[in-house]
Design a binder for these strands. Structure first.
Lengths: 276, 276
DNA sequence: GCCCCGCATTGACAAAGATCAAGTCAGGCT
DNA sequence: AGCCTGACTTGATCTTTGTCAATGCGGGGC
């Protein structure tokens, strides 16, 4: 289902890929044999930016594992589109549709060059039956995904645009292990706007509104001169915002809830280098 | 955690209760022995309307099974409240928190006199390990719940207030086995307003706006004199609205997605036959 | 029966957000 | 280098939604 934009580039699956896959909570405790069986039928593909991996309504034949790059999940209705989530490595996506062997509710599109491991849905479903440990991991992953979406609904219904942006910035700050004066936006602003449920114009104005709280923007670099003021406005809440603390704190591994993402850190470092 | 509002009324668990529980897809294929073990520690309680069963942030010790009455799930932030879902029998709730053994993201409150079976979370979690069939059912239920929440986000972000109301009415019509001229709202209007993500005042105006499409309201009774016009405005979409599209189409049994409700399905099939 | 209280509706107004239209800027291409 | 494209911003305007206030309606309790 890749309509345009050049052929995907298939390549063989390296053991390094499998190791990264294995590092996900979803696969970590799987029996070695089941893991081998599941990945036997998998194949690896590279996609250029802007490739539609999956269209909502399509039957879902694979579980996707994003190993490098960035993928956007979005939904469409009445010629409008809204971004429902953005994935960074290492993450899986559309597990729910695979488990139910049904059609996708979200479309998926690459935002950057991306390497994706595609695991046949059949293999996933039979592994759930054969390997209890994996079955449990699937349940935990889906429970986390459910909670992520509950948070999204609360965020959308209880907060206005400026508050959503403020919390997004607070989240970025919290997830950045480095010092605190600046954060780097991880997506194009128009993508971010859609993710936050507003138009690009309105995102610009929301940034402008946050100048009072000491927020200034320069391209993708946002400097937060008065974190306390920003946080006072944002009122982050653990029951909405899942600030995955890398640095400290335990957070039960099951409660990842970032779809199934685990290791963001690499990408962050990269984007930090180049800045206007 | 039932703060006020009179003592809950505990009573013994009857076999009839267990049978209704068993009818849920979540429990239907469970081994008899596991089911007996799981329900051994369960107890039954009656709650008057307005009782807080669970407060967001609370640790979750039980899986709740609603056997009669009506329960509202809502979220809170910054002194505002929004309804995230409304359950009718027979449904379970907060399975995700039980699976992860963590705190609740949603509060639960009875809207009517309700009978609720409370199953200890430990028993659920150990049953998942011991009974593969049950583990699979849990995964499927959570996958359905995830998809329900994805639909909710799309509904909220892609549609305006009038469109959300129109689709709600179309959904009620589709799920009502009787003839088509009227539907009955299932909740107080202010609850419905919150569920649809608007204020009560705005709900009134949304109803007024639908008069052009032949919608008139009288208390809880809504008459739809021109279904085609209403549907034309609502543009219901199987990827957002989980009711049988008017054409045909089967709903795959796995794709329940109504949290974990089952009882609708029969109604759906019925309404499929008769169509304007 | 009467009184109250809470729900629902309506109108006037205010705030939030979307749309339309320029206009700027940076990066990529020839 | 020069140009072109696409992203971002800003202002003006309109639509949608929320807020505040007043009123009507109806059911439950005394």
């Amino acid at each position: 289902m890749a309509p345009e934009c050049g052929d995907p580039w298939s390549r063989s699956v390296r053991t390094h890929d499998l190791e990264r896959c294995r590092s996900l909570p979803l696969f970590a405790n799987m029996h070695a044999e089941t893991f081998r069986h599941v990945t036997a039928g998998a194949h690896m593909q590279r996609f250029p930016p802007g490739t539609m991996l999956l269209l909502e309504g399509d039957a879902v034949d694979f579980l996707y594992v994003l190993l490098s790059g960035q993928v956007e999940l979005h939904g469409t209705w009445n010629d409008q589109e809204t971004v429902l989530g953005i994935l960074r490595p290492v993450s899986t996506f559309i597990l729910a549709a695979v488990v139910l062997d049904t059609d996708a509710l979200m479309s998926a599109r690459t935002l950057e060059n991306s390497e994706i491991l595609m695991i046949p849905g059949d293999a996933i479903r039979s592994a759930m039956v054969e390997d209890t440990e994996f079955g449990l991991a699937v349940s935990r992953d889906l429970a986390g995904g459910f909670r992520t979406m509950v948070r999204a609904v609360k965020n959308q219904k209880l907060r206005n645009a400026v508050e959503r942006l403020a919390n997004h910035l607070v989240m970025l700050r919290a997830s950045d292990p480095g010092v605190g004066a600046t954060v780097v936006l991880r997506h194009e602003k128009r993508v971010l706007a859609s993710l936050l449920g507003m138009t690009p114009e309105n995102l610009s104005r929301a940034f402008a509104a946050l100048r009072k709280q000491g927020v200034t923007v320069n391209g993708a670099v946002v400097t937060i001169s008065n974190p306390a003021a920003l946080i006072a406005l944002a009122k982050p809440d653990p029951l909405i915002d899942n600030h995955a603390p890398f640095g400290a704190d335990i957070v039960t591994p099951a409660d990842a809830e970032i779809w199934s993402t685990n290791s963001h850190r690499a990408a962050l470092a990269r984007s930090e280098k180049r800045r206007a």
